[in-house]
Write a protein that binds this DNA or RNA. Structure first.
Lengths: 106, 106
DNA sequence: GCCCATACCTCGGTAACCGATGTATCGTGG
DNA sequence: CCACGATACATCGGTTACCGAGGTATGGGC
């Protein structure tokens, strides 16, 4: 399936929330997000990688090149202190939005 | 307050859901939506009116000019049969999105 | 007379995303 | 041993739904 797509603006919140559970590299992050979404949402690389670069520039996440056991290069991302704060805010914001949507559509 | 804004793509769903509870004219619809959102979400006329025109073109809603008791002209919108179907679909879609967001951020 | 609320509308600009495309390495089945 | 899919990164032009600002017009209150 993997048809639908994350609602606009939520990608950053989801990335921050997921990285809050542990550092991941981009590709694994995409897989983790799709798994969390039970395959309902497709994570587009053309959205994810630019978003990661932006979050890095903003100082919300820190990246470092590492070598996977199989030799492939990976860029592993983890939350900075500022990122943890941002994650908390974004999580609250989007939970609020979800709550409001449920209330208004129920 | 009225700071935040409806998430992208949800406006149509909310309009359809609200009109499902009875016909309204544009301005009243905006007020009704903001009230439903407890003042959290601001409804922009620059978003609402074009959305209404689009929904009308698509045949989801029907409009008719009426005269308010005070003499002001109003364009009252109501759901068509197709609109009721669309409302159901949009409601299910966005409730699903809200559910997924809650699950992924909780 | 002036201003705010009501009530409609349009239009340029933009944020965030989509889709396509590109690079490169690794594992594996034939 | 080599083609192909999975892994893993990246960029970039195009789209879309919206935002913000502006416009018109009438009604009622002070």
């Amino acid at each position: 399936m993997k048809r639908d797509v994350v609602p606009r603006g939520a990608l950053r919140a989801l990335v921050l929330a997921t990285l809050g559970d542990g550092a991941l590299h981009g590709y694994a992050l995409a897989r983790a997000l799709e798994e969390r979404a039970l395959g309902t949402w497709k994570i587009r690389e053309g959205s994810l990688y630019p978003a990661l670069h932006e979050l890095e520039l903003e100082g919300a996440i820190a990246a470092s090149w590492t070598k996977a056991p199989n030799g492939r290069r990976r860029r592993v991302y983890s939350l900075t202190r500022a990122g943890k704060r941002a994650a908390k805010g974004a999580r609250a914001e989007w939970l609020g939005i979800a709550e409001m949507l449920k209330a208004m559509l129920a």
